[in-house]
């Protein structure tokens, strides 16, 4: 493993390096340094100030992209206002990884098994992106593959009176999800996100048709039969908890 490591001190500088080298933004590296070791240029974001705080705004909780899972887990604001995200953070990996891994990195690694993305999609989160200028996009509309902008913060609406997250892994910690699911409800508005059941996390707004949109595959983690059976059970559990 060898690469050029750039350590910009400002957002502008980071964007400049990105344009010049076509490099990859690096948050904590818990995914990139393990699974994508053949990059030429890595642009470490950790020296850029202002990306590591959780703040309450009028309608949103604003979470900096470098906020770690440990910070999410320790935040009473997240626990109280965004329980699905708190549960996802709490159930991700183990303490060592939660101390490093960031919410921005988890979104950026674009995995169908990202626990936080499942929670954030259910919670109708938006992301703030920086590419020389700032823009804002709903997470469900974000097209990762042709997006080269940096995620600077995640804005999670506070409007959902109920939200919850469920995960099934092969062991009780340090486990990739075999399937995960989150449900957020605000009156008649219901959003259900399911991970690991397709090439990306799948969002559905109608509890009665969630299962129709899932297309799991047989893999090392389980069979289609098993994943489908568990999806049905998680959906039953979450809808019951949500009073649906």
């Amino acid at each position: 493993m060898s690469y050029r490591l750039h350590i910009p001190k400002t957002l502008q500088e980071a964007v400049q390096i990105k344009k010049e080298t076509g490099g990859t933004y690096l948050a904590a590296g818990t995914d990139i340094l393990v699974n994508h070791r053949h990059k030429d240029d890595l642009i470490a974001l950790e020296k850029i100030p202002g990306l590591s705080s959780i703040e309450e705004e009028k309608d949103y909780v604003r979470i900096g992209s470098l906020v770690t899972f440990n910070q999410l887990e320790k935040s009473s604001l997240v626990k109280e206002k965004l329980p699905a995200l708190w549960q996802a953070a709490y159930n991700t990996a183990g303490p060592q990884i939660r101390n490093r891994a960031t919410i921005g990195g988890n979104i950026g690694c674009f995995s169908p098994a990202s626990d936080s993305v499942t929670a954030l999609l259910a919670l109708d989160a938006e992301v703030e992106l920086f590419d020389g200028k700032t823009c804002r996009e709903k997470l469900e509309n974000l097209h990762f593959l042709d997006n080269t902008a940096m995620i600077t913060s995640v804005l999670v609406p506070k409007r959902f009176g109920f939200s919850a997250f469920e995960k099934v892994g092969k062991r009780n910690a340090m486990s990739v999800s075999v399937i995960n699911m989150a449900l957020a409800r605000n009156g008649s508005e219901v959003r259900i996100a399911t991970g690991c059941m397709g090439p990306q996390v799948i969002l559905c707004k109608d509890p009665s048709s969630v299962l129709e949109f899932l297309y799991p595959i047989n893999d090392r983690w389980g069979t289609i039969e098993y994943k489908t059976a568990v999806a049905r059970k998680l959906l039953d559990k979450l809808t019951k908890e949500a009073g649906l």
Binding site: G94, R171, N172, A173, M174, S175
Partner: peptide, 11 residues
């Protein structure tokens, strides 16, 4: 060790 599932202390 991510896909050979040894029990963790939580298990």
């Amino acid at each position: 060790l991510a896909n050979y599932i040894l029990p963790s202390s939580m298990d």
